[in-house]
Structure formats: structure tokens, C-alpha cells
């Protein structure tokens, strides 16, 4: 099949960008979206033009490196899928596909479709850990944890840090990302000791990075490729309130 791409091209963070159109022919249904871009890029290279820069690595939906706005939807049209897992069978011959980077103040563009998400690392630095030194941990089975709590922690911990929640939110809020980490530790016995400081510090850092406030629109949950639930945000709010009251 044949598709037309309208791709955001931007040389670097200090140069303005614009959309450029490309016709891509001989696209097969079994190609992944990125393999289609690879093919386009190789043809650009052959012509001596600069290929389109986009972030990707594992290409199997787990590293969180990829992330494109495709026709205005974070990670494209499918639910519960990262951009790298999207295949061309989700499109039809003759489609025009608009491809943009994540747009958020806290995610400045590096080049074309690549943005800088190190703000997420700084939120993590502010408290996304349990302070244990290597060695000296008690036997792993010393503290039984109910399967329910372990499964809940897992569901929160499944976040891949891709940033789709931010990109899709009209306020560019990083609430779902932050809440997922806060929740993971809040439901585990190991996370209790630092529970209060963790939520306060992570939320403060989130604000300092320039992410917007959460107004509970739920767009993040709908577009999250790992289907991280809004329950996490509710839990963060409770944790935050509790920690603030405890002062």
C-alpha cells in the first residue's frame, strides 16, 4: 500500500520546526510502523537527504524509548500498544498519517521526533526508591506479601516511562507516571518507612519540572500503552493528603 506521511522536522531545540510531507510506497501490512520509517529513511539516505530522527530501541514495547503522536493520538490508534508495536495493518492504502513528537514544556525537542524526557529521571531521583543498601537485606521470604498486594504493585510497576500520559494530557501533567511509582511502594511493606517523604518529594519535583496540574480528565489512562490505571492517581492523592496532614 501507499501512504502519505506528514512528519514534524526540527533541526534542534533552538530552531523552529515544520511539517514535511513524504510519500511512502510499497508498504506491506506486516511491517511495523518503524520498519516503514526505516524504509523511508533508507531512501532519504540514498538521496543524500537527512533521515527522520525518532527514538526507539527494544521495538517490543518494554523499554519505553519510543513514542510518537500519530494522527493526534499518543502511540497511534490502538489501545495498550507502544508505537514500536504498531503495525501497518492498522492503516489503509492512501492514508495520510500525521506524525509529531510528544509536546510538553517539560519535554523539550532534541531533534525531529525526539524529545528529552530526563525530567522523569529527576522525579525518580526525588524519591522513587526504597533506601536499602546492597547486602544485609533479610531473607526474601521473611516478610510474606499477599498475592493481591504483590500483583497490585506489579501493575503499577509496569509503567515503562514513555511519557505518553504527559503528551496526551491537555495540562501536560506527569501525574500518572508519578502516581504509578508512588503506588508501587505504597502497597508494599518495604515501602512504608519512606512513604510520606516519597510522595511529597516526588510531587514537588514534578511541579518543579514544569509539568501541569492534574484535572482528572483521564486521557492519560486511555492512552497509556501499559494501561496504568487512574486508581494510581487516586492513591497518590490520598498518600499526598495523608503526608501533608501529618506535616
Amino acid at each position: 500500500m501507499k501512504v502519505t506521511l506528514k512528519v514534524w522536522r526540527q533541526k534542534n531545540g533552538s530552531t523552529p520546526g515544520q511539517f514535511v510531507s513524504y510519500e511512502v510506497d510499497q508498504v506491506s501490512e506486516d511491517m511495523s510502523f518503524f520498519e516503514m520509517l526505516d524504509m523511508l529513511n533508507n531512501s532519504l539516505v540514498r538521496k543524500g537527504e537527512e533521515p527522520i530522527s525518532f527514538d526507539h530501541d527494544c521495538r517490543e514495547g518494554i523499554c519505553g524509548t519510543c513514542g510518537l503522536m500519530i494522527n493526534g493520538r499518543a502511540h497511534g490508534p490502538l489501545k495498550g500498544v507502544t508505537t514500536c508495536q504498531l503495525h501497518m495493518r492498522s492503516f489503509s492504502d492512501g492514508d495520510t498519517i500525521v506524525v509529531e513528537p510528544w509536546r510538553a514544556r517539560a519535554f523539550p525537542v532534541i531533534r525531529d521526533l525526539i524529545v528529552d524526557r530526563t525530567a522523569f529521571d529527576r522525579i525518580m531521583e526525588a524519591g522513587g526508591y526504597i533506601s536499602v543498601r546492597t547486602g544485609g537485606a533479610p531473607d526474601a521470604n521473611a516478610i510474606p506479601i499477599s498475592k493481591k498486594a504483590a500483583d497490585a504493585a506489579f501493575d503499577s510497576a509496569a509503567c515503562i516511562g514513555c511519557g505518553a500520559c504527559v503528551a496526551t494530557c491537555k495540562n501536560s501533567s506527569a501525574m500518572l507516571f508519578t502516581a504509578a511509582k508512588v503506588s508501587q511502594f505504597a502497597v508494599l511493606p518495604q515501602g512504608q518507612v519512606e512513604r510520606k517523604e516519597r510522595v511529597l518529594n516526588m510531587v514537588a519535583q514534578m511541579d518543579a519540572e514544569g509539568f501541569g496540574a492534574c484535572t482528572n480528565t483521564g486521557a492519560c489512562e486511555a492512552e497509556c500503552p501499559k494501561e496504568i490505571s487512574l486508581v494510581n492517581i487516586a492513591r497518590l492523592n490520598r498518600e499526598f493528603l495523608r503526608a501533608s496532614l501529618a506535616g
Partner: peptide, 22 residues
């Protein structure tokens, strides 16, 4: 064995049985 202890202490949600053990 130390690795598993370390990881659990870090809050890694390994799969568990209904009794709460790994």
C-alpha cells in the same frame, strides 16, 4: 540467593503464591 533478598528489599514485585511467599 543474596540477589533475590536484595531485590525483594528494593520493592521488586516478584510473582507470589497465595500464601504470600515467592
Amino acid at each position: 540467593n543474596n540477589i533475590i533478598d536484595q531485590c525483594v528489599a528494593q520493592g521488586i514485585p516478584f510473582a507470589r503464591e497465595y500464601g504470600g511467599l515467592l
